[in-house]
């Protein structure tokens, strides 16, 4: 799927994650130097990612303090995330990398950013390769299962169930 100025939207996320292959990364970097529009988009995506992380952190804190109120809190959090998403991204559905990012954000405060990132990378590799870009919506359930198994092996069944639950929430929108 073409996103912005010929770059697939997943490339933007991979660029920020640092997982984009060196050649594509250099190509995108060169483009960013000469295109203020894309530089602005990148800035917006980065800010949005930080927003997602902040929301996930506050959600976990909220669970500890007021577990009964989580329903409302989660709903509001999701609405804020959607409202704050960059205009260039808001007009279409969620790309694979975005869904991964959301899942990772839920895991970050519980497992630690390093563990969450590492688990996502390994699950993506097991699912079909992160770098060769073969991941698609059809592979989402497999990815979620692999991620759940990987994280569950270290963090236990509750963590695995959480991934499966959030993964299913996102996957329910896949056509």
């Amino acid at each position: 799927m073409t996103g912005h100025h010929g770059f697939a939207q997943q490339e933007w996320f991979e660029y920020l994650e640092g997982t984009l292959p060196p050649a594509q990364r250099a190509h995108l970097s060169a483009h960013l130097d000469s295109c203020p529009q894309c530089a602005q988009l990148l800035h917006q995506i980065r800010a949005w990612e930080q927003k997602v992380e902040e929301e996930a952190r506050s959600l976990v804190l909220h669970v500890e303090r007021h577990p009964y109120d989580l329903d409302r809190m989660s709903t509001e959090m999701m609405c804020r995330i959607r409202l704050d998403s960059p205009p260039a991204l808001a007009a279409r559905g969620m790309v694979f990398a975005e869904a991964v990012r959301l899942l990772q954000s839920v895991l970050d405060p519980l497992c630690g950013k390093g563990a969450a990132a590492s688990a996502v990378r390994m699950a993506a590799e097991r699912t079909g390769g992160w770098l060769d870009r073969r991941l698609s919506s059809e592979r989402w359930p497999v990815f979620v299962r692999n991620l759940g198994e990987g994280v569950g092996a270290v963090y236990g069944v509750p963590a695995q169930l959480l991934i499966e639950r959030v993964g299913a929430l996102v996957a329910a929108e896949v056509e």
Partner: peptide, 25 residues
């Protein structure tokens, strides 16, 4: 983590209705 799982299990459909996500592409 168990607390989060429980809450997501209870409020899953309600969450979906407000997420506004169209699909994963």
């Amino acid at each position: 983590t168990s607390c989060l799982v429980e809450q997501y299990s209870i409020s899953g459909p309600a969450l979906l209705a407000t997420l506004g996500w169209k699909k994963i592409q």
